[in-house]
Amino acid sequence: MQEDVRRHMNRHLTSEVGISLAEFSILSALRVTPDRPMRVYELIDTLRWEKTRIIHQISRMVRRGLVERQASPEDGRGTNIALTVEGRAVIDEALPLHVLHVRRLFFDVLAPQQLDTLAVMSEAVLENLQSESFEE
């Protein structure tokens, strides 16, 4: 189900606003902090992606003009990632469409009791991940 939903969401975003689900994830994370760019490690923590995945995705997005790299004023070695004007316009268009799509996929087809059950199940799995040493 997870892969089917991800593939469906990716197709929807691509056809509606011309961005992938991965691009949407990064743009929406950056949109949460509109007054400042984010460090790469903040994106890694927020999205829970591997560093190489973030770096490659950001490189593609820089080429597309959606984000830009900026030298960190606090640390010359660090890199900040910021939305471009085009990236902000794309995510501002994508967010309400994405919310409606998620509502149609999940909230419109699941009863409140089913959503509560899903939340309880998700919390149990997340607690198990935190208590076990699944990290490599």
Rank of each mutant, 00 (worst) to 15 (best):
Gln130Cys: 08
Gln2Tyr: 05
Pro96Tyr: 07
Thr14Glu: 12
Pro96Arg: 03
Thr84His: 03
Glu3Ser: 08
Glu86Asp: 11
Arg48Val: 14
Ala82Cys: 02
Arg64His: 11
Leu43Met: 05
Ala82Phe: 00
Glu135Gln: 00
Leu126Val: 11
Arg39Lys: 09
Ser122Gly: 15
Ile26Trp: 06
Val125Arg: 07
His101Gln: 14
Leu83Asp: 03
Ser131Pro: 02
Val99Trp: 07
Ala89Glu: 13
Arg31Ile: 01
Leu129Ser: 12
Glu50Arg: 13
Ala29Met: 04
Arg31Ser: 05
Leu27Tyr: 01
Val85Met: 08
Asp108Leu: 01
Glu50Lys: 15
Gln114Leu: 05
Arg11Asp: 14
Ile19Trp: 02
Asp116His: 02
Gly76Tyr: 05
Ile91Lys: 09
Gly65Ser: 01
Leu27Lys: 05
Thr117Leu: 13
Ser15Met: 12
Arg104Pro: 01
His101Glu: 15
Ile44Val: 15
Met9Pro: 03
Glu42Asp: 05
His56Tyr: 14
Arg69Cys: 01
Leu118Met: 15
Leu13Val: 00
His56Ser: 10
Gln57Met: 14
His98Arg: 06
Phe107Leu: 14
Asn128Leu: 08
Ser59Tyr: 06
Gln130Tyr: 11
Leu43Thr: 12
Ser131Ala: 12
Val17Lys: 02
Val120Met: 11
Glu74Ala: 10
Gln70Ile: 05
Arg63His: 09
Arg77Thr: 04
Ile81Val: 12
Ile19Leu: 07
Val5Tyr: 07
Gly78Phe: 02
Leu129Tyr: 03
Val99Ile: 10
Arg60Lys: 14
His56Asn: 14
